[in-house]
Design a protein around this nucleic acid. Structure first.
Length: 745
RNA sequence: GCGCGUAUAGCUCAGGGGUAGAGCGCUACGUUGACAUCGUAGAGGCCCUUGGUUCAAAUCCAAGUACGCGCACCA
């Protein structure tokens, strides 16, 4: 067997991948008594290209898949991409802006077309990257969260919830991003601390009204009877409908019920008692703005206060407010209002204060709590079985600490705002009509439920008849990705592919990063349990997040990102895979160091040269004619060295299998590295050289060398599939192994 | 504020109750040897701090410090 002196991945990888594809080795192979093993890939967003985190995650999954496939399990790994509503919309808008255009210039329909173009381009790139990584996914089952059947499944799900009465429409305060012009879920909001101010504003009692109105100077109203409130957001005061104090607060006890005149606006508001007010904070009196604050909304509900909107969806002041503030940007308005409060004597003092700014996780704009009409999904009934599945251990977490994190979130999750005011995504399957419905009980054919209610129709297809308009809103992107494991396996899809669902669901493993435990993992669990009656996966593997060597987040804009494709080009896919796993020791983060990729590249070459050494020293003609090529009589005849290497080899095989099973990829690669380099190359190869000089031990040593090579290729294959397959093919060409393709041997 | 994670060589990290380990980097030497993507030799460590357990602690326990992450409506 002749091998070139150096292993050159660029000559091998493409060829090998094509060979696998042609032989259809990635498709599940059934058989009697076969266990099934399945993974649905966390579908990458179509926003751009894959980063090192994806490379790590996909390598981990490919190791699992290849390991089980070689074990003889019926194995499937489903690839796909996520339409990623708000994220994708934003990148496409950004792209448009380069040409000075906005989505409004295109209009909704053309904008959607544009995003589909984007999807074709970038979705394709992402899939190509999976190939370059060597991922053994079943391409015949490629999925996208906006495939035709996926759309149908999403609508079916919406209708299902709606029928159960778990979806409702309501006017609530939601996180609103003025730039994205959409509502956001809590999980899409990031909090950042920032230096700000705390403004102390005097609200005067009603009987002082005339005095205030005639007021020009500060001195005159100084003695007027007033109550002081502290706020970080004075611009919202125009929407105040009360001032709240703690009923326990001796300072204000007697003032409850008194009327105040709202500064600048001149409206009358009341002092109310609320036990949630923290007495030590500020002045102990807090202004209540039900339309622009989550907590104030709650208080407002309880006290039946007016919800006065003063900030519009574009972030500008509007509504029933003094003319001079109309149309002002919210931050400009704050300046103006503070100025006016000061000049009119309402501003008592200003203190420095660290405020927590809510920011849009997609575009970094300051999020505005705004009262608006949205759709919600009730969590009460959905979360119970999910909690049970986690608690009971039906779903296991690796590392185990994430179990509690997921459980705690789910336990206190409240109703999920599922509507978004975007153009890209699954439009709500809700139609409304202004005209009176003649036949209130008109049956809905495709759902067979009576879902006409308040002129609302919910169904898979538009309702019969004229005058219906579909909701402009789209669903939160996680509403659809929550269905990923079972929709990709054919849930609600007619035809014979539904066998997949039976065979492969629940999936075996979900491998993902910790930052989407809430967004995705939790929601998959309750969605799957409700819709299929099954858990979506048995094990959840949470892999470390890949940081730069300095500990920063990998990010293109920071210049800290590393393109896995560049690494693959330099070092080869196997080296990138092995190097990433070598660093994956199970911590919550991983500081990526290229030195380990270098080491892995060298390791590949080491392996190559071990094979070369063995190839040179084998008398292939002899072995070829043996019935079983790896059959060797080592037990009795072996030297001390032989026994030692074979014992270690057996140990490694066992240990690596255990480690893969327990998601200890780092440990497995360390073991393999040390065995191959130290025990095999450094020690045994030298010993073997000597043993082969002696006629008595020559033949058995050759047999052991071949046996060890074959074994180690198999053990290493899930980690470094290309080089092992290439060496294997050389062995096959020489007639040293029976099976043609290592990946399924 | 609450919770979680991490702390070992210049860097990235293993290990683990009893002489401190790897890769990368660095220094010196070495190509007839499967491999210079290699080999041999070497420099380089209060194993975060303080207590506790122990014959013995880098390791186990507790507290502290630093850094990172997550959650939380304190206006």
């Amino acid at each position: 067997m002749e091998l070139e002196k150096k292993y050159d991945p660029s000559k091998v990888e493409k060829k090998v991948y094509q060979k696998w594809e042609q032989a259809e080795v990635f498709k599940p192979k059934g058989g009697k008594g076969k266990k099934s093993f399945s993974i649905a890939i966390p579908p990458p967003n179509i926003t751009g290209s894959l980063h090192l985190g994806h490379a790590l995650n996909n390598t981990a999954q490919d190791i699992l898949i290849r390991f089980h496939r070689m074990k003889g399990d019926e194995t499937i790994w489903i690839p796909g991409t996520d339409h990623a509503g708000i994220a994708t919309q934003n990148v496409v808008e950004k792209d448009l802006r380069k040409n000075g255009k906005s989505r409004f210039d295109l209009g909704r329909e053309n904008f959607e077309k544009r995003v589909w173009q984007w999807k074709d381009e970038y979705g394709g790139k992402i899939l190509d990257q999976l190939k370059k990584m060597g991922c053994s996914v079943d391409w015949s089952r490629l999925a996208f969260t906006m495939d035709e059947n996926y759309i149908k499944a999403v609508r079916q799900t919406f209708a299902h919830y709606y029928k159960k009465g778990w979806i409702y429409q309501g006017e609530r305060v939601v996180n609103w991003c003025p730039r994205c012009a959409s509502s956001l879920s809590d999980l899409e909001v990031e909090s950042k601390e920032k230096a700000g101010k705390l403004y102390f504003v005097k609200y005067f009692f009603k009987n002082q009204k005339s005095k205030i109105k005639n007021q020009n100077g500060i001195s005159k109203i100084k003695n007027a009877e007033s109550i002081s409130v502290a706020t970080t957001r004075p611009e919202t005061m125009l929407g105040d409908s009360a001032v709240a104090v703690n009923p326990q607060d001796a300072r204000y006890k007697n003032l409850v019920g008194r009327k105040l005149i709202l500064p600048l606006a001149g409206r009358e508001i009341e002092i109310i008692a609320n036990s949630e007010v923290q007495m030590p904070f500020g002045t102990g009196a807090v202004k209540i703005t039900p339309a622009h604050s989550f907590s104030d909304f709650e208080i407002g509900q309880r006290h039946n206060l007016a919800k006065i909107k003063v900030i519009d969806k574009d972030g500008k002041m509007f509504g029933d407010i003094p003319k001079k503030y109309q149309g002002l940007d919210r931050f400009q308005a704050r300046k103006e209002i503070v100025k006016d409060l000061r000049s009119q004597g309402f501003l008592e003092k200003v203190e420095d204060y660290e405020i927590i700014l809510p920011l849009c996780s997609r575009c970094d704009s300051v999020v505005e709590p705004i009262l608006s009409q949205q759709w919600f999904l009730k969590m009460d009934c959905l979360k119970k079985p999910a909690l049970e599945a986690i608690k009971s251990g039906k779903i296991k977490f690796y590392p185990v600490r994430y179990k509690k994190i997921c459980y705690d979130w789910l336990e206190k999750a409240y109703d999920w705002c599922i509507s978004r005011q975007l153009w890209w995504g699954h439009r709500l399957p809700v139609w409304q009509t202004k005209s009176k419905i003649k036949n209130q009980k008109s049956k809905i054919l495709d759902l067979k439920i009576e879902n006409c209610d308040k002129n609302i129709y919910v169904g898979l297809t538009p309702p019969p008849g004229e005058g219906w308009t579909q909701s402009e809103d789209v669903l939160d992107t996680w509403f659809s990705s929550a269905l990923w494991t079972f929709v990709t396996l054919g849930w609600q899809r007619p035809g014979d592919k539904n066998k997949d669902l039976e065979k492969f669901h629940p999936t075996s493993v979900l491998s993902t990063a910790r930052d989407i435990i809430f967004l995705w993992v939790g929601r998959m669990i309750f969605s799957s349990l409700e819709l299929t009656g099954e858990i979506p996966f048995r094990k959840v593997y949470i892999h470390p997040i890949v940081l730069s060597e300095k500990g920063q987040r990998m990010s293109k804009s920071l210049g800290t990102g590393i393109d896995p494709l560049d690494l693959i080009q330099t070092y080869g896919a196997d080296a990138v895979r092995f190097g990433l796993m070598y660093q994956n020791m199970g911590g919550q983060d991983l500081r990526f160091s290229e030195s380990h990729i270098v080491a892995s590249r060298n390791f590949c070459n080491k392996l190559w040269n071990i094979a070369r050494f063995i190839g040179i020293n084998l008398e292939t003609s002899k072995i070829k004619n043996q019935k079983s090529k790896t059959h060797i009589k080592i037990q009795k005849e072996g030297t001390k060295n032989d026994k030692e290497i074979l014992r270690k080899l057996a140990e490694i095989e066992k240990q690596v299998a255990k480690d893969i099973d327990g998601f200890r990829f780092g440990k497995a690669t360390h073991l393999l590295y040390d065995f191959v380099w130290r025990d095999l190359a450094d020690n045994y190869l030298g010993q073997a050289r000597e043993q082969m000089q002696v006629e008595k031990t020559k033949e058995s040593t050759q047999a052991i060398l071949l046996f060890t090579l074959i074994k180690i290729l198999k053990i290493l294959h899930p980690f470094m599939p290309f080089i092992t397959e290439e060496i294997w093919s050389k062995l096959y060409d020489e007639g040293l192994v029976d099976e043609e393709i290592l990946a399924i041997s």
